[in-house]
């Protein structure tokens, strides 16, 4: 499958929408397990209690890729980028919308690979709160 074709057919179209809630207990467990010590992340009674910026990576949509996306192989997690626009508080209800943001190819230690960047935009009360870019890599299936 040619990269230009994939780009033309699949980029920038929302393929998933889902609601999430940030729960205090999960925020604390996420924060403490990852080594956070700042009270605003680990103490629910802190006046500025909020989720660590990457907490939003725990929200998964119904699917990683659009339903009809060509089956190129098993997507592996190659990286994540999080842009935080505003703090996520305990009890925040977020609407996550996903689209494919970028598609490119390169060669790496695992051979020829296709990179897919799936972007989830998370909104709270209609305001953009966070952006999560999940970079997935699919190793090309051997031919012949």
């Amino acid at each position: 499958m040619e990269i230009d074709e994939l780009k033309r057919d699949w980029l920038d179209q929302d393929f998933d929408e889902m609601e999430f809630e940030a729960k205090a207990e999960e925020i604390v467990d996420f924060a403490t397990a990852s080594g956070e010590t700042a009270p605003r992340f680990v103490d629910p009674s802190h006046p500025d209690f909020q989720a660590p910026p990457t907490f939003v990576t725990r929200f998964h949509g119904r699917r990683l890729l659009p339903e009809e996306f060509p089956k190129l192989g098993l997507p592996l997690d190659a990286g994540k980028a999080v842009i935080q626009k505003r703090p996520i508080r305990a009890g925040s209800r977020l609407l996550g919308r996903s689209h494919l943001h970028d598609i490119y190819e390169k060669t790496g230690r695992s051979g020829r690979m296709v990179f897919l960047v799936s972007r989830m935009e998370l909104y709270e009360d209609g305001q953009l709160a966070s952006i999560v870019d999940s970079r997935m890599v699919i190793r090309e299936k051997p031919t012949g």
């Binding site: 996420f30 990852s34 660590p52 990457t54």
Partner: peptide, 11 residues
Amino acid sequence: GIMSQAMLAAL
């Protein structure tokens, strides 16, 4: 992976 990322943020 997301735990590794969270640990980097914790630093």
